[in-house]
Design a binder for these strands. Sequence first.
DNA 1: GCCAACGTTGGC
DNA 2: GCCAACGTTGGC
Length: 143
Amino acid sequence: MEKGGGVRYWLLKSEPDEFGWPDQVAAGDVGAEWHGIRNYQARNNLRAMELGDRAFFYHSNIGKEIVGVVEVTRLAAQDSTTDDARWLSVWVRALHPLRAVTLAQCKGEPALQNMVLLNNSRLSVQPVTASEWQLICALGGFV
DNA sequence: GCCAACGTTGGC
DNA sequence: GCCAACGTTGGC
């Protein structure tokens, strides 16, 4: 568990008809609470996030594509949508839109074959490696 | 709408 | 602690 090694990278999944990129953008610099995570692995990833960490915003089900970059603005704390102390949420704000990078596109990239997105499709909060991050940013036109 | 993969629950 | 049954997620 590397600590203090600078910004780390993540991927957050949301169904766009529940909460999509436009909703995240509309939340502005204050951002929005990333709530509703009820999976231990995902929760542990939330807990590992630090201020300033960046995450891809992924549209699951509808779209199946990475559509933007968000930044962590509040550390993990009690999820406001439950009293159950096991569940945490962070806050994130929209940082930059991406030209959509589709799941199919990722599958076609040899350098992305080990992405969690391709190998554990059900995990809704995932780590992303620095090299994966850079490649997807390049594909998405975010330089 | 279907189904595979995965996580959780609960009986033993 | 094992494992069968069940529920959920998410790609197709």
